[in-house]
């Protein structure tokens, strides 16, 4: 049964309103930015009043927070974790290392920009970003969700060949399961 346009708008509004107020962040500290996450989640900068809390496994999480640089060994695990999360899912790039490589631009083990391997919704810049900057990044993600523009899970699914060829250039020993959604 298809909804007509007006009822679809009401359904979308309620759905997006509920999604933006309960964002579960996966408990995975991938790089040096993980030191500002305990400060954001505890009593002074309280992120739980926005509905943000931690989740233990990828099947229960909405947001993947890539805190800082990624080495090639971690990239393989992050791709596997991202493919285990269920839609709708969002990726936030934290720190200047996800934007253009940061201060490790000439290192043989860290990647130089996250956009080529995973679709990113919001970037937060800084080294480290303050807890107030982290919360403002989440507020921007909430605005994108409300406007209906945060569906990068579909974008990953449609451009899977493009992302896979980029990932396979870096990760040489590719023994991972196929993406099945």
């Amino acid at each position: 049964m298809e909804n007509d346009k007006n009822s679809q708008k009401i359904v979308d509004y309620i759905q997006n309103f509920a999604r933006k107020h309960s964002l579960f962040v996966l408990a995975y500290g991938t790089g040096c930015g993980a030191i500002e996450i305990p400060a954001t989640m505890t009593s002074r900068y309280d992120a739980e009043r926005f509905g943000i809390r931690g989740a233990a496994t990828p099947r229960q999480a909405d947001v993947l927070l890539i805190t800082g640089y990624l080495s090639t060994k971690t990239l393989k695990r992050v791709i596997r974790v991202y493919e285990q999360m269920q839609e709708p899912k969002y990726v936030i790039g934290f720190g200047s290392c996800t934007i253009n490589g940061g201060m490790y631009y000439d290192s043989y083990n860290t990647i130089n920009g996250l956009d080529q391997y995973l679709p990113v919704d919001v970037y937060i810049n800084g080294c480290m970003p303050r807890p107030e900057a982290v919360i403002s990044g989440f507020v921007k993600l909430q605005e994108l969700i409300m406007a209906g523009k945060a569906n990068n899970g579909e974008k990953y699914r449609e451009n899977l060949e493009h992302y896979r060829s980029n990932q396979k250039k870096i990760i040489k020993n590719w023994k991972m399961p196929d993406y099945n959604w």
Partner: peptide
């Protein structure tokens, strides 16, 4: 090995004073 950034190789490419921007990030807490 999940957090290896090759610090000691990067410090060899920087001056004595530029190296100390990299040193803080050795031990994060």
């Amino acid at each position: 090995g999940y957090l290896h950034r090759a610090f000691e190789k990067l410090i060899e490419r920087r001056n004595w004073i530029q190296a100390f921007t990299l040193l803080c990030r050795f031990c994060v807490p």
